[in-house]
Every structure is written in structure tokens, then in C-alpha cells.
Simulated assay, not measured.
Amino acid sequence: MGLALCSLAAQAQEKPNFLIIQCDHLTQRVVGAYGQTQGYTQSIDEVASKGVVFSNAYVGCPLSQPSRAALWSGMMPHQTNVRSNSAEHINPRLPESTATLGSLFSQSGYEAVHFGKCHDMGSLRGFKHKDPVAKPFTDPNFPVNNDSFLDVGTCEDAVAYLSNPPEEPFICIADFLNPHNICGFVGENEGVHTDHPIPGELPPLPDNFEIENWNDLPSPYNIYAAVIDA
């Protein structure tokens, strides 16, 4: 999920500034702005209440890397050939001849900066990237891991940049790993966390949540079948 923001003052400029906030693993069904749940996403809901909500927006692929390559290049996975989360021995990097969001903005006189998670197979070309520094912390309510630690660094980097912006117009991406950390609720953290329950009811799982036969899925997803069988 991504949120693109520009200030009202910036809209009056010839070249407005842009901030894109990217979240990993966030589904529309749990965002209060879409009317299905309330109380979980107050900050996102506040931004949505002051802007425009797109109810018919779709990712290019339900896998992270193909989806990111599609988003930053404007091309579908069958065009980029980035079709899985695997590394370069399976997925080719986007060629230099492929236009990307970062290259187009840079060529138009923007400073293009990116903070946080990449996993893009070259589709972030044109952006100046800064790796986040992990900032460990503990949460008494929920288990956290290095994904969350890195998100603190990403947030601090983006805030520092926006607090002292350049003179030229800019496009800034704050790219977070969470709420991918839901994966931290398996293994030793598995179970219902009743000490600090989440208020209200979560939306129901989609009808296709339970997968009966992984082999019936397209080949990019079969890698997970091997992991589960192992």
C-alpha cells in the first residue's frame, strides 16, 4: 500500500513536492478509511479524510518484489520479467533503458530520494537511496523483530530530510517493512495475545485464504509450497 501526499502550498508551485509512504503487507480490508474496520489505522484514516481515497487500486502482483518493480516502473511483471521474490539468478534486473519513477523525476529536475526497504530488482533506479539503521526497542504489547527496528531508522531518516528539504523540488519515498511483522506472530509468539487484546473485531479472512493445493497455483508461488512441506 502506498500513500502519495503533497501539501496545499506545494500544489501552487510549478513543480510540487511529493511524499510517498509505502507499507508492506497492509491490506485494504483493515484500513478504517475504507469503512470496514475502525480504530486500527488512525493516522492513515486522518490523512485519507483530508484527501482522496482510491477504492479500485490494485497491485501488479501479490508478491513483494514483482509488485514493487511494477509500481516503480509502471510495467506489469510479465513485462519486467520480475516474477518472484528470488534474487538475480532467477529474476533479471530492470535494464537501464527502462524508464522508472526515479529516473523520470530526476530528469525533470527533481531530487529523488528513497529511505527504507528496497527489494526492487533495479526499479528504484534514479532515486538516491539510504539504508536505514536499526534502532532496537521493546514493545510490551506485541513481539517485534529487526523489521520493526529498521522502520524506526527509516522514519527518522525521512523526517530529518523533510525537516530540512532541498531548494529544488523533491520526491521522497519512506518505504516501511511493516505491517509485514505479522509474520512475527508465528513460532514462539504464536497464539492469542490476551494481555493486550486489540479492541473490536477484525474483518473476516478472504474466501481463498485456505489453500488446498499449492501445486494448482502459478509457478512463482510454488516456492512457498516447498518451504511448507519441508
Rank of each mutant, 00 (worst) to 15 (best):
E188P: 11
S123P: 03
H193L: 11
T154C: 08
P92T: 03
P218C: 01
I182T: 11
P166H: 06
H114A: 08
G102Y: 04
F115H: 01
L202C: 00
V133H: 05
P95G: 08
P206K: 02
C118M: 15
E201A: 11
L124A: 01
R125C: 00
E212A: 04
W214H: 05
P140D: 01
N85K: 00
D147W: 03
F105V: 03
A99Q: 14
N146V: 15
V144W: 04
P132G: 03
G102W: 05
I211N: 01
N181F: 05
G116H: 00
P197F: 08
T100I: 06
G187T: 15
G200W: 08
D207A: 14
T154A: 06
E167A: 04
C183F: 13
D207L: 07
K117H: 00
E190V: 10
S84D: 01
P92F: 02
F170V: 11
G187A: 12
P199K: 03
H193G: 02
F142T: 15
T98M: 07
E88F: 13
I182G: 15
A174F: 03
P165A: 01
S148R: 03
P199W: 06
P179C: 12
G200V: 02
P179R: 08
D151K: 12
L94I: 13
S106T: 14
R93Q: 11
P136T: 00
H180W: 01
N189Y: 09
A99M: 11
R125L: 00
E88W: 14
N141F: 14
I198A: 11
T194I: 12
L101Y: 06
P204H: 07
P179H: 06
D195I: 11
C118W: 13
E167L: 10
Y161T: 10
V152S: 09
E111M: 08
P203Y: 02
E167I: 09
G116W: 01
G191S: 01
E167R: 10
R83H: 12
D147I: 10
P140F: 06
L202N: 11
L124T: 03
H193C: 03
P206T: 02
I211F: 01
E190N: 06
L202P: 04
P165T: 07
N181R: 08
F185V: 06
E201T: 12
H119N: 00
H129C: 11
P95C: 05
A158S: 10
S123H: 00
R125W: 02
G122I: 00
H114M: 10
T154W: 10
P143N: 12
Y110K: 09
N146Y: 14
P166T: 07
G109M: 08
H196F: 15
C183S: 15
P165M: 06
F105Y: 12
D175G: 13
F209L: 04
S123L: 03
E212I: 01
A174T: 08
V113D: 05
T98Y: 04
P165R: 00
V192R: 03
P95F: 08
V186A: 12
H196M: 07
